[in-house]
Amino acid sequence: MATQQTNTLARVMMAPAVIVLLIWMIVPLVMTIWFSFQNYSLINPMMTGFAGWANYIYVIGDPSFTQALVNTLLLVGGVLIITVIGGTFIALLLDQPIWGQGILRILVISPFFVMPPVAALIWKNGFLHPGYGMFGHLFKMLGLQPVDWFAQYPLFSIIVIVAWQWLPFATLILLTALQSLSEEQREAAEMDGANAINRFWYIIMPHMARAITIVILIQTIFLLGIFAEIRVTTGGGPGYASTNIAFLVFRTGILSNDIGAGSAGGVVAVIIANIVAFFLMRAVGKNLDA
């Protein structure tokens, strides 16, 4: 409801945002797709011309791709399981009548604000290092052989770091959702004779379902792109043991200078992300009726 003049003005006001985002979305993506069908290496300038599906066959056919795909799924899945279950638990705990709720919230949310490389380095040196990490000390105190986590369990170690970063996010969102549940509804359930477990399953969980969905979808988008944590800790190794798709593209394209193959990997990453995005958009879109 507005005049034609306002609507025209509105279009002008939106134009810069729409134009820059349009360019940002289309130009690089088209280039990636174009490169993915080219023979293009920064080291070997002789390699040129149309490559057909060769880059895709090379990337997807390589065992490192399968491993990176499995690692990506393990990383995303592992972190999601830890953060959703842990987040629900912590959110329920913080929602209880406790002393110092404000300070607790701040403590719990803090890891989310730690930049990824710092998070990775804190864990790498302060906790997981076999010589002077906290776990190393702990194992020694118990008379056990300290574990070199990044060498023996590289992917697991990365999952722990990433989960630590994202647990606060899940907790905060689930806590916000929990607190939007009206006290009256809880009291009504109590009056109806529901005990704590019944209340959790029949009142709290249905109310939280939407928030949990959103946590899962948004985290998935970010977790598919985990990069700095790997770069700083294992560098994708040993071998390809902790390389995910995002890091594989970086390794192939930037480190090995194979633009064609790197681009093919990039296109695959875009396709995977789009599948997740499709569901997220539907969940967010439902909320957009205004």
């Binding site: 985002l21 940002w24 690089p28 798709i245």
Partner: peptide, 26 residues
């Protein structure tokens, strides 16, 4: 408007690695 908003959101979903190489070259 709703479609435009959703589309803007969708640009955020694009994985950075998908466009890393062209951006790097540009």
């Amino acid at each position: 408007t709703k479609d435009v908003l959703m589309w803007m959101l969708s640009t955020k979903m694009m994985p950075a690695v998908g466009v890393l190489i062209p951006i790097y070259l540009i």
